[in-house]
Design a protein around this nucleic acid. Sequence first.
RNA 1: GUGGCCGUAGCUCAGUUUGGUUAGAGCGCCAGGUUGUGGCCCUGGAGGUCGGGGGUUCAAGUCCCCUCGGUCACCCCA
Length: 415
Amino acid sequence: MAGEVFKAPTGTHDVVPPTSARWEALERVFADLATRAGFGLLRTPVFEDLAVFKRVGEATDVVRKEMYDFEDKGGRHLALRPEGTAPVVRSFVQHRPPLPWKVWYQAPMFRYERPQAGRYRQHHQVGVEVLCTDDADLDVEVIALGHDYLRQLGLHQVTLLVNSLGDATCKPAYLDALRAHFATRTLCDEHKERYVENPLRVLDCKREACVGASADAPRMVDNLCEPCGAHFARVTAGLTAAGIDHTVESRLVRGLDYYTRTTFEFQADALDAAQSGVLGGGRYDGLVESMGGPPTPGIGFGSGIERVLLACDAEGVFPGPEASIDVFVVDVTGGETARDLVLELRRAGLGAERAYDGRSMKSQMKQADRSGARLALIVGDDELAAGEVTVRPLSGGDQDRVPRTDVIDRVRKLL
RNA sequence: GUGGCCGUAGCUCAGUUUGGUUAGAGCGCCAGGUUGUGGCCCUGGAGGUCGGGGGUUCAAGUCCCCUCGGUCACCCCA
């Protein structure tokens, strides 16, 4: 063996067959659901102007320390996409499409973090965004899409948490109330100073001191202004009407600063790993404006494919398709028949494979077995001389010899 | 960025505590048993610079240092 063996970079992974077929199947499930709900596929570049992502919040970890940013040969400061919403909004502002703009995506995301269970430097998300209105029915529709997606994969041990962060009217007053509350409490080392800057973070902190201080803290949902309260009430009522169980979690803050009003997250209870959030999102009514577009409310979610598949593994659901072909051609006469026959079969729309290198019949039959093919087509000296092919069902049963010219018809009948 | 654990065959791992001749197993792969037939079984085979570098020693997979990688957790997120 010569020298260095290269490996995929830290935090990245190859998706190798047959696992890749499972990914394709998952993406198809999502694409079908989104398409039926009126969403079109949006493909955006893998990198954007760094400033696009800074709009998700200068104070967030994603922007402060997890960005894969770089300067290109033209001196432009670019960054690999760390999340899905900002590029969609940038694209919206650039193209100004007619409303409502409902798009879905399926794309790799990049964050410079230390990898661990369910977290990678390159991970993949499917997601949707709707830009148009702050109609609460849209919140319900988007959350329901996420719910149905997870359900269609077979996941059942999933908890939906919802919250409202209020808007420009009620959020500031609530933050003041929170600050006043925490000022009288003992917080963890990290937050005892930082709470002034962003008191919502304390609600998200899992350290004992902060958990205690948060327990009787004022709840945003109790301090919403009238429009926000009415909006949130219609969202939760809509979820109930849709038969979607949900829990109002006033500490669901989420890490991106652009969220207003509704935030939500589906957690996979079957995952004992620390990363159990499999689908999360929310409303961002000020983001389009901050990117230079006309005031346009928006809502969406992202869902990590790797994590969702981990959750599927934990529940033992969504195994993915069995990779198999229709027929396997076994040729011990030199290989010319196999060479011609697999092409004929494939051109006829059938899945056909063969062995190479003139292996023994036993070896070729073994490969046929492993291939998962339903039928083996066997060509030996007798068949070659007679202008025939032996058709053998690999799951058992009697084999049969048919004229070479009738092979495709016979195969079609037997499949 | 901080911390714990772990790097031995393609994969999963013994062996490391008490350094000692040619480093093992299961699975997988290849071949044979069955000279035209897969799955089950039996036999054999290929495949390792023991992550890399340095050090201690007569002798290092085993002890020490450094380094790279993996993994789990914190932070945060999908």
